[in-house]
Design a protein around this nucleic acid. Structure first.
Length: 273
DNA sequence: ACTAACCTGTAA
DNA sequence: TTACAGGTTAGT
């Protein structure tokens, strides 16, 4: 489900409820959803620690606990983190319940792809999946030059390169297609074929569309909900994702729907060159 | 660089 | 019944 704008929205809606709250109890309904550190169980590591704050890196949520422990959470396709102010009966696909001083966090995931890992905070930088991630697209250090640098000497279709989290962190199938449409560039173009002007346009489009996604609290095309169970409303602003065969909102030509880098890809062959 | 695998649900 | 789904990884 969630790409950068959705994860950022979950972060914002969750942190306001749980900041400075102590985790009093963990209920592991499906233990496969979590992993601990070395020989310590997840419950032992996490119980009785206070949530300091929640950060985000790409599509990862970083729940910062006392004494330098971080919970690295990834929702994959259908994961959710829900906050409830009162005790709540777990739903069918809830795998972990964090009982707090006030309220509960429920981690649920229909497809069981999502994971929460407990790891000492210093190891997040060197010893976790985070360490190989590309730059954060909304930070000021991410410039057009950095994007060109990240493409490097690779000769990949843009679609594949932009989906690669090592190139740039946070884009997924929705926001790659939307970025390329807004930049007017075809998803099959090779990373080595772009002019400086096109890279600049793409860089701008990526930042623009991600910010717009956050402003709209994400895209609830199917399952996505924030920590309060609310939908985002960016779906109405989607130009191409999920609109294969429908008319382009700019030129009215029927949108192409192809398979590229193993993913369904929608674009306008007239607006995108 | 592509495919299968991980899972379940929904729609065609 | 089959295809497909917002992601990532480990295999060819």
């Amino acid at each position: 489900m969630p790409e950068l704008p959705e994860v950022e929205t979950i972060r914002r809606t969750l942190v306001e409820h749980v900041k400075n709250s102590k985790i009093e109890e963990i209920k592991l309904i499906w233990p496969g959803a979590v992993c601990g550190w070395e020989d310590q169980s997840f419950e032992a590591l996490v119980t009785d620690r206070r949530i300091q704050t929640i950060d985000r890196r790409g599509k990862y949520l970083l729940i910062r606990l006392d004494e330098d422990l971080t919970l690295i959470a990834h929702m994959r396709m259908t994961g959710r983190l829900n906050y409830y102010p009162e005790n709540q009966e777990p739903e069918k696909h809830t795998h972990v319940v964090f009982r707090l001083e006030h309220g509960e966090i429920h981690f649920s995931d229909v497809r069981k792809f999502g994971r929460i890992q407990a790891i000492p905070t210093p190891l997040c930088i060197s010893g976790s999946s985070l360490c190989k991630l590309g730059p954060e697209p909304l930070e000021t250090e991410f410039t057009s030059e950095v994007l060109r640098e990240r493409f490097g000497k690779k000769k990949l279709p843009l679609k594949a390169a932009l989906l690669d989290q090592h190139v740039l962190a946070g884009l997924g199938n929705i926001y790659v297609d939307e970025s390329l449409f807004r930049a007017g560039i075809s998803p099959g173009r090779g990373t080595d074929t772009l002019t400086e002007a096109e890279i600049s346009k793409l860089h701008h489009a990526i930042q623009d569309v991600l910010q717009a996604g956050i402003d709209a609290q994400g895209t609830s095309f199917r399952d996505y909900r924030d920590a309060n169970g609310e939908k985002g409303f960016f779906e109405q602003e989607l130009q191409v994702y999920g609109r294969g065969g429908k008319p382009c909102k700019v030129c009215e030509q029927s949108l192409e729907r192809i398979r590229l880098a193993g993913r369904t890809t929608v674009y306008c062959s007239r607006c995108q060159k």
